[in-house]
Simulated scan of single mutants.
Amino acid sequence: MTNPCKDEIDSILAQQRLHTEQIQELCEVVRRIEADTAGIVDVFQSLNGAFKVLHCIGKLARPIGWIAAAVTAVVAAWASIKHGVIK
């Protein structure tokens, strides 16, 4: 005759071993995912820095455009005066 408590304990221990194996497999999957996504995180961090630089360039674009327009107007006026268009 078998002891019902021993059978139950053996069943619980078998389930515990199975769960331990499943947890180890999940930990390995998580490690692989972490390694795979590390590169993606680096790319996004780099893009974040690039967008900050582009934002700064965008802030400078309008004043630089005004300066370029003013220089162009002065050069055009000078060329007109030099070639006798404006007297």
Rank of each mutant, 00 (worst) to 15 (best):
I57F: 00
T37K: 10
E8T: 02
A14H: 10
K6L: 04
L26S: 00
H55K: 11
R31G: 07
S80Y: 03
I86E: 08
R31N: 09
I23Y: 12
G65K: 10
K6M: 00
V74I: 08
Q15D: 15
A61S: 04
A79S: 11
Q15P: 03
T20C: 07
L18T: 09
Q24M: 06
F51W: 12
V74G: 03
C5K: 09
V43Y: 09
K59Q: 00
N3I: 04
I33S: 04
I23A: 15
V41L: 13
V41W: 14
V53A: 02
A77C: 08
S80K: 10
A76P: 06
P4Y: 06
V30D: 00
A76W: 10
M1D: 08
T37N: 14
I33G: 05
A50M: 10
A35G: 05
A61K: 02
A79Y: 13
H55L: 06
E8R: 12
K52R: 08
I9Y: 00
I57G: 01
S80E: 09
D36T: 07
A68M: 13
A14M: 10
L13I: 05
L18K: 11
I33T: 13
R31E: 10
A35M: 05
A14S: 13
I12M: 01
A73Y: 11
V53M: 06
L60A: 07
R32D: 01
T37D: 09
I64K: 15
A76F: 12
S80H: 05
G65E: 01
A35W: 09
V43C: 14
E21Y: 13
A77D: 08
A76T: 14
R17L: 05
D36A: 06
I67C: 04
L60V: 04
N3A: 04
V74P: 04
L60P: 03
R32Q: 12
G65S: 11
C5R: 08
C56G: 14
S46R: 15
I81K: 07
A38H: 09
S46E: 13
L54G: 00
Q24G: 08
A69H: 02
Q22E: 07
A35R: 10
N48F: 11
Q45P: 05
D7T: 03
L18P: 04
K6H: 02
V71R: 05
T2G: 03
D36H: 15
G65W: 01
V85E: 01
R17G: 09
D36R: 12
T2A: 05
L54T: 02
K6S: 01
R32T: 09
Q22W: 05
I9W: 01
V74N: 02
I33A: 09
Q24K: 14
T72R: 05
T20S: 08
P4F: 11
M1S: 10
K82V: 02
G39K: 06
S80N: 08
A14Q: 14
H19P: 02
A68G: 10
F44S: 12
D36C: 13
Q16P: 00
E25D: 06
I57C: 03
A69I: 12
G84L: 08
A61T: 05
L13H: 11
W78H: 10
R31P: 03
I64L: 15
N3S: 06
T72W: 00
